[in-house]
Design a protein around this nucleic acid. Structure first.
Lengths: 239, 239
DNA sequence: TTCCGGCCATGACCTGCGTCAAGGTCGGAG
DNA sequence: CTCCGACCTTGACGCAGGTCATGGCCGGAA
């Protein structure tokens, strides 16, 4: 874990700028942002660096300044279950502020990233004076709860094909020409979908045989997004 | 949904008493408790009554006064996934306070219950004056997050036997003589473990054949908690 | 060039568990 | 008492998907 560093005075103004972009701080005055910036510790992470591990005592919560941080659990046998990937402007580990138990999961950078550590003590002080900040945090945690509930749905109520279809539809929406670039290796995608690379292979092959998609080495092309969505709806409707 | 009722003056003192027992309000003064009691709406639920459904606009959050409330999701095909069962003194749906989206799941009484509805507006006012209440809420939501993360673990990393062992060990810890009284019917327990009643039956039978437990009609007796815990560890270790 | 170590695809196999169906038991209503 | 409906148990069966093993392909190092 890289050590947090102290900041020269002139960097603080830049910091307040990136704080202002965070949903969670958007209701605060410039003055309060200055205050937060003054005790925020920037942390630089290389790809693969761990920010914290499950069970570590919590030091505060975090805001992603750039890059992406993967929150996941590791089982006794070493299998990883991805919980969520947080990107620029998002905050996580707010629960650390109020409960004295350690972090409930692991956090690792999936690409070179910078995050801000907002230490417990000063933030609690500020909350005392600015209750609307507490509300923002409640809202943020509530959103995290929803994400987890969504994951539960995925894992319990859908089969792999449906999860994959869902993924394709979601990522295909904003893809030029229906070409979806894969973020990493297929094994990684399989993990994100909560399955094995073999099963993912088979499922992709099935959809390919049915002319719904084209599979290249590091990209998937959606041939007919309408049909794909229809197939997804069918799976959700019957199953 | 039964309508909330207004209270005669003399019931308020009793109410403050039960509020005081809730973790979430334990830091408040008697005066504040009086205030909360004055705007809390008691709701009586028969077994099976729904408190709210997924997607309904949120009116506030809830505290269980007696009984038990089951939070669950329903899939497109009508399958239910239990998220958590809240019992006396526990609070839920705190996220409703801060976010304007509707409830993310369904809530139904699993036995005759009374809950208190704490409406949004007055609670937000109070939070403005008592920031420590906000912290309690953050802590409570953080605990809910942990529960969900635990469920994720269960669903992704363990088979039914392991989940049952885990449940038995957890509930057997505080059980006199290793006798665990079942909260409801076995079908309910099965749902809580995310499986079917048949599979639960079979799994209980297996553990019974191996002399680890005794199964009576509405109770399970742990014969040797050490062996049980060992079996759990073995399952976690290999899988 | 050759070799070697990933990734990927595909077939073979097995297993956990959900579902259906057929009793068995118990408790409450009549 | 009898009857009926819940609940539980157990067996039979099917299937999704995880694991293992094989073989092809590609990219980097020597």
């Amino acid at each position: 874990m890289p050590a947090p560093s102290r900041l020269p005075e002139h960097k603080l103004t830049g910091l307040t700028g990136s704080l202002r972009c965070c949903q969670i701080f958007s209701s605060l005055s410039g003055e309060d942002l200055q205050l937060i910036a003054s005790f925020a510790s920037p942390i630089t992470l290389a790809k693969g660096d761990y920010l914290f591990h499950e069970g570590e005592p919590s030091r505060g919560f975090y805001v992603v300044q750039s890059g992406a941080v993967n929150i996941h659990r590791v089982s006794a046998v070493g299998k990883e279950q991805v919980i969520h990937v947080f990107r620029t402007g998002e905050s996580f580990a707010e629960g650390a502020l109020a409960s004295s138990t350690g972090y409930p999961a692991d956090a690792r950078a999936v690409e070179p990233s910078t995050v801000l550590l907002l230490p417990k003590g000063p933030v609690l002080d500020l909350i005392g004076r600015r209750p609307d900040l507490a509300l923002r945090m409640l809202a943020s945690m509530s959103a995290h709860l929803r994400v987890l509930v969504g994951m539960l749905d995925d894992l319990t109520l859908k089969d792999v094909e449906t999860r994959l279809l869902n993924w394709l539809v979601k990522h295909g929406r904003a893809a030029p020409g229906g070409v979806i670039k894969l973020p990493g290796t297929k094994r990684v995608l399989a993990a994100e979908l909560g399955t094995s690379s073999e099963t993912l292979s088979r499922t992709l092959a099935r959809l390919r045989n049915e002319q719904l998609i084209l599979v290249a080495s590091k990209a998937v092309t959606v041939r007919n997004s309408g049909l794909l969505a229809a197939r997804l709806r069918k799976n959700l409707g019957e199953a």
